[in-house]
Design a protein around this nucleic acid. Sequence first.
DNA 1: ATGGACGGGTGAATGAATTAACAGAATACC
DNA 2: GGTATTCTGTTAATTCATTCACCCGTCCAT
Lengths: 210, 210
Amino acid sequence: MPQVPKAVVSRLSLYLRELHRLARDGKETISSTQLGKLLGCTAAQVRKDMANFGQFGYPGVGYRCAELVTAIKQIMGTHQPWSVALVGIGNLGQALLGYRGFTDQGFRIVAAFDLDPHLIGTDVQGIPVFAVDELASVIREQSIRLAILAVPSSAAQEMADELTKAGIEGILNFAPVTLSHPPSVHTVGVDLAIELEQLSFAVVNKRQNS
Amino acid sequence: MPQVPKAVVSRLSLYLRELHRLARDGKETISSTQLGKLLGCTAAQVRKDMANFGQFGYPGVGYRCAELVTAIKQIMGTHQPWSVALVGIGNLGQALLGYRGFTDQGFRIVAAFDLDPHLIGTDVQGIPVFAVDELASVIREQSIRLAILAVPSSAAQEMADELTKAGIEGILNFAPVTLSHPPSVHTVGVDLAIELEQLSFAVVNKRQNS
DNA sequence: ATGGACGGGTGAATGAATTAACAGAATACC
DNA sequence: GGTATTCTGTTAATTCATTCACCCGTCCAT
């Protein structure tokens, strides 16, 4: 499995989400056809995507939901929980601190960082807030590998550099800028305005499906 | 321009973001090579992407930043502001209400909806809050075409149906579920946990670049 | 048992998208 | 003014992703 296409990985997350729901609703097994329909892709695609990682299906039966959930979690690396750092406790940062979806998927925010002296030393939503100076030491002590960056664009690159120096391996960036970073660090960017822009394009260009 | 690949559209937003910054910093023109480097793609890609929509560059010069910004805005449909509805004023919803990036890109949240009787009738961050019953009437009166859905997963599909009935054309969905919807409505999903999951995969599989 | 329907794995064929290569146009420099 | 350079638009080549078609295994009804 040396080269897994990026598109496959993002679909894997969607499969996982759907399978999780199905398993919780008590569905034992599901066929590639059904799963494909649920996600708007072909059955062949589902099978091929899974084939990248091994054999998981049972001929004549389909995929066992619960089993596939654990398999995909293993593949994605979320079979055991991650400790995550949050940098920036503004509007968005606070919302992320309280976001249930993270913990549900095995991501636990264990430390938050900000500049505001009123916040430093306190707990916000049960999470301790540290000064940015302490970034490196806290990250090392708690062996945190992932960080969420929710600071203003003007500070984003600088904070990303700090995180990199502290040995962070992945950054989820909410600032609307393209971060530059060494290849040893991975970044995923979420620009909320861009998502709306995509919607705007789709609407004005009245393209079918979605 | 009958069939523009989806990947092109999402890159267009990144170009726009970068060009916007460049223009503000006083840069007159930029070559496809430079722009590509800034975004981590090849110069050929930049040129090809733009070629989908017409001719914007000047041989021997490059692209004029300010000019290209307005051209892309025109293409994306954000050359004039959009009125947007927000459904769900929880943790995340409130953060989105206060998010600066939306207004900067021409998206104005003009109405919010929630179930909580304490909120209905009040203003949150200067935006009036309505009951869900009023969804259709408010949306029609203000001719709102886009909506942001920030409700718990359990309510997401139901609210999406309401929005559809009310004539909404595009939904930005933050609930971690796949919405089913008629082809006349476009949806873009943002699942924050999935983004972290993608990061997790990239980190454990130590794939280079990003 | 056994026939038929269901369903996954897999390699070949199709279709997209990215990259490479080049011809022509504007600029800068001497 | 000519020449070298820069840079676009575009066509061709390559790479990548998706779909198709078939084989074989499993289950269920008879």
